[in-house]
Write a protein that binds this DNA or RNA. Structure first.
Length: 556
DNA sequence: AGGATATGACTCC
DNA sequence: TGGAGTCCCTATCC
């Protein structure tokens, strides 16, 4: 083929310029100096553009399409010209064409959202009701005494220290404090591994790698044996692991025939223990509930459809006071209250409607009489009394905890120590500009008023922290953020750990691997091969074991 | 430094 | 009902 010159084939280029006043800050600086010449230059550009337009028209006649290079600002969100969305430094600029990212209402951006500006996040107050029924009478007599009538002031430290540890190789999905050992934290991850960390003796950690083959969705300690823990996983099994020996047994396997395709693979999500009845309750991704006897480890009866068929049941919670009451929630936008003595499809006592997927639903930890739910519509919902009117929540609190498919779902968790049952903790999705850093704090919310009581953050921690749990006895908050675990405590109370962590402690698993290879043992640390959906092999993650320490602020 | 990639819910047809 | 296409602040790896 005869060679062609570029001149002959290269299409004409049309350059479009933004003519309005919106320019980036760096442009502005440069342009201020050149202001005098600007008008003149634009004329030149216009003339040139005209010439090019003529040329391009000519090219069109000849059948060549001109390439248009636009120097106008194009919004990467809505693709429209004239504005831009995205981070400007540590502040995120919203696309004005989209509804508010926080409250989801049109007409304003997240920055101007009244729920963001208010010190009290948006609250829809409880309507005054005067409908007394017999159940409510029972509640007043039996349960109300358990809840403190006068709410004590929350004691919020000014500063916290945060121990950061990283030994999971995938993102953290759940956390659980040991019921009696105050310094023991369990963590589950997306890969199926379970970590045990003694944060009192920072160097003591253990990672169990062979319990599950994928996501650990929920863990609960065995109420009759502190050393054993149950876990429900997306591999379709419930495990019971002895933390002393590391020996794990499988109570139930929903996929005994292995992989039979996506539509047949059953995954376990919600799980809770009913100690009174000696039951493990689990629910799957098809809407079914399973009951397992903890003494015989046998499944009891048939699975019961408790949520929309084919939808994921992500949360189960047994009432701490009334053992026959069960709360479930899932992807069918409902949280449901059940009587365990009468578990049949469609026999729920109440269906609590939500606008989106319900990530979690919990009874209050002491009286069991309140319900707190987290929904993907960016709202926390509170029902003040399960014996009152459950038709609508007592309060809705607007809070940014949008689900993003690459994050573990956010769940608002009660403070089990708060006698007034009004403090909850939840990570925040949306970032805030804190002295030039975009941070995602962990919010403490007074769910009786909707007030943001405290925001905990650390300039060194820039990741989102969707998994949080408050210690049942101590002033400790445990968090899971991506692959890292944090232990937050008030600054004055952390001497124990502080002295040990003056310097960064780095112990590398690779050293262990090397040693075990030298001794001829096949290391159990070796990562399983991972493949993409297209069959491409992924490189395994480098194991790390790292602990750092930093000081965080508490903003009120 | 930036592209690839893990991958869930929802809407539309 | 199911498959394709879309989606606003990810985190990590190379």
């Amino acid at each position: 083929m005869a060679p062609q010159t570029r001149r002959m084939t290269f299409p004409n280029v049309v350059i479009e310029r933004d003519t309005d006043s919106e320019r980036s800050s760096s442009d502005e600086e440069e342009e201020e100096e050149e202001e005098d010449h600007e008008e003149e230059e634009e004329k030149v550009v216009d003339n040139k553009n005209e010439e090019r337009m003529e040329e391009s028209l000519e090219a069109k006649k000849k059948g060549k399409t001109p390439i248009t290079i636009s120097l106008k600002k194009v919004c990467k969100v809505c693709k429209k010209v004239g504005h831009e969305a995205g981070f400007k430094g540590a502040t995120y600029i919203d696309c004005p064409m989209k509804p508010c990212f926080l409250c989801k209402m049109p007409g304003h951006t997240t920055m101007a959202c009244p729920h963001r500006v208010a010190t009290e996040h948006g609250v829809i107050p409880a309507p005054r009701r005067n409908t007394r029924n017999p159940l409510e009478y029972v509640f007043e007599r039996q349960f109300r005494p358990r809840v403190l009538r006068i709410k004590p002031a929350f004691v919020i430290p000014d500063e916290v220290t945060c121990a950061v540890i990283r030994y999971h190789s995938r993102r953290i999905t759940c956390l659980e404090f040991h019921p009696t050992n105050n310094n023991l934290l369990l963590s589950g991850d997306k890969k199926g591994q379970v970590g045990v960390w003694d944060f009192g003796k920072v160097h003591e950690k253990m990672v169990y790698r062979n319990i599950h083959s994928c996501i650990v969705n929920n863990m609960r300690f065995n109420p009759t044996n502190d050393d054993s823990v149950y876990a429900a996983s997306s591999d379709g099994t419930i495990s019971c692991t002895d933390l002393e020996t590391g020996i794990s047994l499988s109570l139930m396997n929903l996929n005994p025939d292995g992989w039979q395709g996506r539509s047949n693979w059953r995954m376990l999500y919600g799980m809770d223990i009913n100690s009174e009845k000696g039951l493990v309750l689990v629910a799957d991704n098809f809407g079914f509930l399973y009951l397992v006897d903890t003494r015989s480890n046998n499944k009891i009866g048939e699975a019961i459809l408790i949520h929309k068929k084919g939808s994921k049941v992500v949360g189960l919670h047994c009432n701490p006071v009334q053992p026959e009451l069960l709360l479930s929630c899932g992807n069918d936008h409902f949280a449901r209250i059940w009587d365990l003595r009468r578990m049949e499809t469609g026999s729920s006592l109440y269906d609590l409607a939500h606008k989106r997927v319900v990530n979690s639903a919990y009874f209050s930890p002491l009286s069991g009489s309140k319900i707190l739910t987290t929904s993907q519509d960016n709202r926390l919902r509170i029902w003040d009394s399960i014996f009152g009117d459950l038709d609508s929540p007592s309060r809705e609190i607007v809070h940014s905890h949008d689900f993003n498919r690459h994050l573990t779902p956010f769940k608002a968790e009660w403070d089990p120590k708060d006698p007034s049952e009004s403090l909850a903790v939840i990570g925040r999705y949306i970032s805030e500009n804190y002295n030039g850093a975009a941070l995602h704090p962990i919010d403490f919310i007074d769910i009786s008023t909707g007030q943001l009581v405290a925001e905990v953050m650390d300039p060194n921690i820039t990741t989102i922290t969707p998994v949080n749990k408050l210690h049942p006895r101590d002033d400790v908050l445990a968090s899971g953020s991506s692959r890292s675990l944090f232990i937050w405590r008030p600054k004055e109370k952390s001497e124990l750990v502080e002295q040990k962590v003056e310097r960064k402690i780095v112990i590398c698993d690779r050293a262990e691997k090397k040693r075990s290879r030298k001794h001829g043992n096949k290391s159990d640390d070796s990562d399983d091969d991972k493949f993409t959906s297209k069959g491409k092999k992924l490189k395994s993650n480098k194991p790390e074991w790292k602990l750092t320490r930093c000081s965080g602020k508490v903003k009120r």
